[in-house]
Design a protein around this nucleic acid. Sequence first.
RNA 1: GCGGCCAUGGUCUAGCGGUAGGACUCAAGCUUCCCAAGCUUGCUGCCCGGGUUCGAUCCCCGGUGGCCGCACCA
Length: 559
Amino acid sequence: MINLGRHEKVMEIALRRGFLWPSYEIYGGSSGFYDYGPLGAALRKNILDIWREFYCVREGFFEISSPTIGPEEVYIASGHVKSFVDPTVECKKCGEVYRADHLVREVLGMETDGLTTDELNRHIEGIKCQKCGGGFGEVWTYNLMFRTHIGPGEKKVGYLRPETAQGMFILFNRLYGFYRKKLPFGVAQIGRAYRNEISPRQGVIRLREFTQAELEIFVSPGEKTHKDFGKVSGDSLRLVPRDGSEIEISAGEAVSRDIIAHELLSYHLILTKNFLECVGIPREKIRFRQHLKTEMAHYAADCWDAEVCTDRFGWVEVVGIADRTDYDLKAHESQSGVELKSFTPFDSPKFYRKKIVVPDMAKIGPDFKGRAGQIVERLKGLGEDEIAAFDEEGYIEFDGIRLDRNYVSIKEVEEKVTGEKITPHVIEPSFGIDRIIYCLLEAAYNERDGRNVLSFKPRVAPIQVGVFPLVAKDELTAVARKIYSKLRGEGYYTVYDESDSIGRRYSRIDEIGVPFAVTVDFDTLKDDTVTVRERDSTNQTRVKIGELKDKLTIGKMFP
RNA sequence: GCGGCCAUGGUCUAGCGGUAGGACUCAAGCUUCCCAAGCUUGCUGCCCGGGUUCGAUCCCCGGUGGCCGCACCA
C-alpha cells in the first residue's frame, strides 16, 4: 500500500523546482511550516480561483476576511479554550505518554467526557502504567491553540484562530443585514489558521499554519434543502457511512435512504466532489466518509469528510462538511449577550388571546416598599398558566410573599405576532487547501521514459505556455521573443527558454506541468506557423501564429 | 511528548581528527533543424551551539530539523 518512491519523487520535485520549501531553513527550520515557492503559490492561486468560481460566483456566497487573532472570549464561546485540548499523562518510570481520559476510560470502564484535570488526577492515582507498572505524574492539558497577548502587558489574552469559521459566525448580524435579512445565505472565507500540533509530520498534510477555504451557510433549521438539488440528485457518490460499509449511491438516494441527513449536505458533497475533480483529483480517488459519533467535533451534528486516496498516506481528509446546527450562534449569543437570530415573518400575522398581569403600583409601592421592584420583576415573568391560576385563586405566592389579586389587574388582550425569531443552523464545508495541493501533486505525477511529468490541467498549471526557438539562432529567437511577449499580453503565464536542446527544454517544462509548448522553427520564417506541443501526448500540431489563442485552450471552468 | 535511526553544494551521494570528491541540476560559451546528445568553463556544501583537541565536518553533550514506531489528529 505504501509507496515511498512516488511521494519522495513528488516532494523532491516540489522542493527543487519551487513548489514547496520547508520554512526558515537558514535558521535550521521549524517543523509544521512550509513556504510556497513561486510555482506552489501560483498553483494555489489557481486552485483558489476555481474555488471562488464554484462558491462565490456560482453559489453566490460572498467572501469576507477577518483577523487571524481573536480575543479570548471568542474561543471561550466556541469551545476551543476548553475542548481543543488533550489531557495527557506520562509514566514516571518508563516515560510512556497516555491520553489521560482514554486511560481512565479503558482501565476503569467509566465515561470520561467532561471530567476536569483534577478529577482525572484522582482517578489516575490508582492506575499503574500498562507497560511497566510504574506510577503516573500529574495530568497536564495541552491546548492546541497558539496563545498570545493583545496590546502591551499580559492582561488581554488572545489566540490565533484554529479555524476561519468563528470570524464568520461573529459577523452574523452584519452579514444577515448585508443579505437583506433573508435565509438562506452563505459566506466564504479563505485564510490562514493555526494549530500548535504536538508532532507535525507528513510534510504539508499536517501543518501548524495552514490555509483553509471555508463556507458557512446559514439556513432555517427546517429547510436544509437546495433549489438546485434536482440537478445533481442523480449524480453518484462514493460513501463510507458510519457502519463502515462502502457504497456507490446517488445523491438523491443517499438522502431518501437516510444515509446523508439532508439534501443540503448531500448537495455539498456533490459540489465538493465536482470541485476536487475540477482541480484534477481523479474521480476514483475521492470518497466521503461519515464521522463516527465519537470522533465528531464538539460542535457538529453530522459530518462527512471528503477523502483523497494517496500513495503515501492512504486516504487523506481534505474537506470536512459538517452540519454545525445552531451550536456556534447560540454559543456566541450567550457569551456576548448579543442576540444572533433571524426573523421569519409569517405569511399573515397570527393573533393570540392571552391574559396579562398589570401591577397596580399605587398599591404595591406603599405596601411593599423596598421589595416592590422585585415583585414587579416576578410578575413580568409569570407564565400563562400561573396567570390563569392567579386569576382563579385570587392570590399568588412567591419568595415568601402573598400577593392579593387587588394589587393587580388581570386583563385579556389580543397579541399580534408577525413572525418568529430563530437561530439559524449552519452547514460548513471546510477545505484544507494545503492537503488538496499535496494530493494534486501526487495525482498529477507521472514518469515518462524515466523523466518526470506533472499532468496538471491547463487551468491549474502554474505556467501555461513555454515558448522556444528550435535552436538559438537570432532569426528564430527574435520571432520567439515576439510570440512570448504577445502571449503574455493575452494573459497567459508564459516562460521563454532558448538554452540547451529542444528536448531538454520540453522535459524541463514537463516536470513543472506546463501543458503547452510553442516552438518556432525555420518554417515559421516562411509561413508564420509554429508547432504547439501538448505535454501529455507530446503530439505536435502546426498552427498559424495568429491562431495560437484558439489552440492554447486553458479549459472551460466547468466541465 | 517518548524511543530508534539520520543530517555533506540546488538535488542525490562518497569520504576523513589536518576544512572535502562524484553524479545530476544550474549558469556562460561552442555545438545543435523537435523530445534530458556532446565539448569547454564556472557557481554553490560539511544543520546550529557548546565541549574535548595544537587542530572538529568527523569524537562527546545539548539544540534544531528529517524519517520510522508509540501517542495524537475538530
